[in-house]
Design a protein around this nucleic acid. Structure first.
Length: 469
DNA sequence: GCGATCAGAT
DNA sequence: CACATCTGATCGC
């Protein structure tokens, strides 16, 4: 769950993905995507009243997010207060204090985040520098380098702070399979199941509101069918999705939901209630698309497939791309800067120093060697800082998820602080701190990293077959 | 009767 | 315990 309080230090009079408490008084609201844990407060009466009394405050999001939001009647009061923005189209926004008339202009650019339909990252440019808020995102290697608005000419823009989804900021999530690998695995699995008889059906156990659409469209296209879902309202203006979904239940592929869907499955029934008309019991394979391939121990789910988030090695790649390269271009272009890169050009991410003062974003000069592991430990009875500076210069990395894992760099040799074990991705291993160190050095030296194994088509790599299934 | 918060669940 | 929710109990207005 997102633990981000809603405000960024550079532009503190706007709120993102949080709309409760103090955020109500922001001069503008930004919604990165339409998942509930990023919408806290968004249907609250306090916010509703604020909208009616303000002449200037608006909610900014993508067109698709607006459509998804308004398809839920609980949010229909937003209709007149949403300003949808095109992707990759810098837009100037005036942030007005209605009491004093004081005004600040910023330019915002929406960048596709690859997390679910309509999901974006926000790039803000203004008097307090360039700031990137990623929301939840799932990019592949190389994607960031293709985003025009992260560049200025041939160089990467200097980014003051990155507010980043850190859900999988943990060595145990070093590798998770790519979307393509997952999709191909599902296609193969579904093909081998539904070809057996008309009574062999597939149930996709989709927990979140959005994010499975690429599954629906690909399955629909591959098997020339539609996928049964509970209702179509949210996709009514998205024909490219609507073509592949239906509310009629005569299909072999279902993604329907019911509060008691587990009970339905016990009785060989789908959550939509459908059974074979001639009384033949359905053979149901249940597939759970989730980032958490290990979370289901209840015998109910046959196969778990992962979706949604970026994973650690890619996160490093992304952060490296943003932070180091912009610093590099800064020094190369001779811009005024107090920054100097060390000889190796390798940030001391894994320094053993214990200088606490480097942890929080202080003004002015910062140490070249702020330690990541320091920020992971709860010494001095203080809460874990969600700000980590891992870069020479002024760039900050700020996590927006629940908590930063305590034992980030402590595996596997000195496994002391972990209260529980998370199984590794099937057939991948946990990288030790030495391996991570080397990975980071490779990233810093600009080596191209590709994690595709040759011939990695095996579905077993991504699927966790439950023995009781 | 609604919202906020929390425990418990998948 | 993590995902992204959803449901139900309890408390306060």
């Amino acid at each position: 769950m997102s633990s981000f309080a809603g405000r960024m230090k550079e532009y503190s009079n706007i709120s993102l993905d949080r709309f409760d408490r103090e955020n109500i008084h922001a001069r503008a609201y930004f919604l990165s995507h339409c998942h509930k844990d990023h919408m806290k407060g968004l249907k609250g009466p306090l916010l509703k009243r604020k909208l009616q009394s303000s002449r200037t405050v608006r909610l900014y999001c993508s067109f698709v997010t607006k459509e998804l939001l308004l398809s839920n009647p609980k949010y229909s009061f937003w209709e007149d207060y949403i300003v949808p923005l095109e992707l990759e189209s810098p837009t100037q926004i005036s942030l007005v204090d209605e009491a004093s008339g004081e005004k600040e202009d910023i330019v915002v650019t929406l960048l596709p985040a690859g997390h679910c339909p309509g999901s974006v990252m926000f790039l803000f440019e203004g008097g307090q520098g360039n700031v990137l808020y990623t929301g939840d995102f799932r990019l592949a290697i190389g994607d960031a380098s293709r985003i025009e608005y992260l560049h200025s000419g041939s160089r990467v823009k200097e980014i003051q702070s990155v507010y980043v989804d850190s859900t999988f900021y943990d060595p145990r999530f070093y590798q998770i399979p790519s979307r393509d690998v997952c999709l191909n695995g599902i296609l193969e699995l579904v093909r081998n199941w539904i070809c057996q008889s008309p009574y062999h059906v597939v149930w996709l156990n989709c927990k979140a509101a959005y994010g499975y659409e690429y599954l629906f469209t690909n399955l629909g296209e591959e098997f020339k069918t539609q996928i049964h879902i509970n209702n179509l309202a949210m996709f009514k203006k998205m024909p490219e999705i609507l073509n592949y979904v239906t509310t009629e239940n005569k299909t072999q592929i279902h993604a329907c939901r019911h509060p008691k869907d587990e009970e339905f499955l016990q009785g060989n029934r789908l959550p939509c209630g459908s059974t074979a008309s001639d009384g033949t019991p359905l053979q149901i394979i249940s597939i759970k698309p989730s980032t958490m391939w290990f979370g289901e121990r209840s015998k109910k789910t046959n196969v778990i497939i992962n979706v949604f988030h970026v994973y650690l090695s890619l996160l490093f790649n992304f952060i490296y791309f943003l932070l180091t390269d912009s610093q590099l271009s800064q020094s190369q272009s001779g811009c005024s800067s107090s920054t100097r890169l060390s000889g190796s050009q390798t940030p001391e991410l894994f320094s053993e120093e214990t200088d606490e003062e480097t942890s929080v974003s202080s003004e002015g000069q910062q140490s070249l060697s702020s330690s990541l592991s320091n920020h992971m430990s709860q010494n001095q009875n203080s809460p874990v800082s969600d700000t980590v500076i891992l870069q020479p210069g002024q760039s900050n990395l700020i996590f927006t998820e629940t908590e930063v894992h305590q034992d980030m760099m402590d595996l596997p040799d000195s496994q002391t602080s972990s209260d529980f074990d998370i199984p590794c991705t099937p057939e991948s291993k946990i990288p030790g701190s030495q391996e991570l160190r080397e990975l980071y050095k490779k990233l810093a030296s600009g080596e191209d990293l590709c994690h595709c194994k040759t011939g990695c088509s095996s579905t077993s790599q991504m699927m966790n077959h439950n023995e009781n299934a």
